[in-house]
Design a protein around this nucleic acid. Structure first.
Lengths: 144, 144
DNA sequence: CCGTATCCGCGCCGATACTG
DNA sequence: CAGTATCGGCGCGGATACGG
């Protein structure tokens, strides 16, 4: 309960047309989930430099299992972010590639990941300082 | 096993200086996890328009529980993305605000969320078409 | 008002085995 | 090579109760 702002149903449906992340039931939450999922992020960024086969992705995205990779790829394909082309040869050969729509999201995601990679040291430093402050707090509590 | 590319340890440590998402044990994976977490995304974007109190965020970020909000805020504070100022009055009063570092990530995240919100309709259309193709496939299989 | 502590279900995800 | 199927642990996250 306490959810569901049905006030102004016209305004609501208009907002639904462009999506409102802050509204609980908005489908954009689902899309965001796929895009920002642990492996979704890495797959999208990996595919930014062109077509990849399944095993290429598996090797590039360190630590992903077959199951999770397949699952992630399906979700992104269902959202229209990538295409899957299977060649019925032996041994099997499947190619994954970003769609124009997918390339756009992937670029936005890459902006974020690039920033994090580039500022990692600054962030780690902040983490250290936070830990230090916490230690002081604990010490102060031990005195009282 | 089979992880751990320790080949070229100098190159590795250099890469660690700027972070490499594709390397399994890189700390940037943790940071990314906080930033792209279900509630982390929404909190960062919400804080983009200035200071918020705890209950402000709770109301703005529809659907988040107290526990998850507190947990999310702690993680983002530990990463140095936001500051927490508690005024020891009755009733309690706590203010959350982005740091300069936090503002930068938040802006990158907002680029992504804005794009998704703006292109939601196109994505939903793609999803429909995917479902339709799947239905055809199932039908074709029923024939053989 | 702003949390922390505890319990607990459910879904993520890894491991393994099997198909085409 | 590129998956699907199944099982099982465990951690995320919701609900509730309680403290400052």
């Amino acid at each position: 309960m306490t959810d569901d702002d049905d006030s102004g149903s016209h305004a609501l449906s208009l907002r639904m047309q462009r999506g409102d992340l802050f509204a609980e039931k908005c489908p954009s939450r689902e899309v965001l989930k796929h895009v920002t999922s642990r492996w979704g992020v890495l797959v999208l960024v990996a595919l930014l430099d062109g077509m990849h086969r399944f095993s290429d992705l598996r090797r590039k995205v360190n630590g992903v299992s077959e199951k999770m990779l397949a699952q992630t790829l399906q979700a992104l394909e269902a959202d229209g972010f990538l295409t899957r082309k299977a060649y019925p040869v032996m041994p099997p050969h499947v190619e994954y590639q970003l769609t124009p729509l997918g390339r756009e999201v992937a670029e936005k995601v890459a902006i974020l990941t690039d920033w994090i990679e580039g500022n990692l040291m600054a962030i780690l430093t902040e983490q250290q300082q936070y830990q230090a402050r916490q230690a002081v707090q604990s010490e102060a509590q031990a005195v009282d």
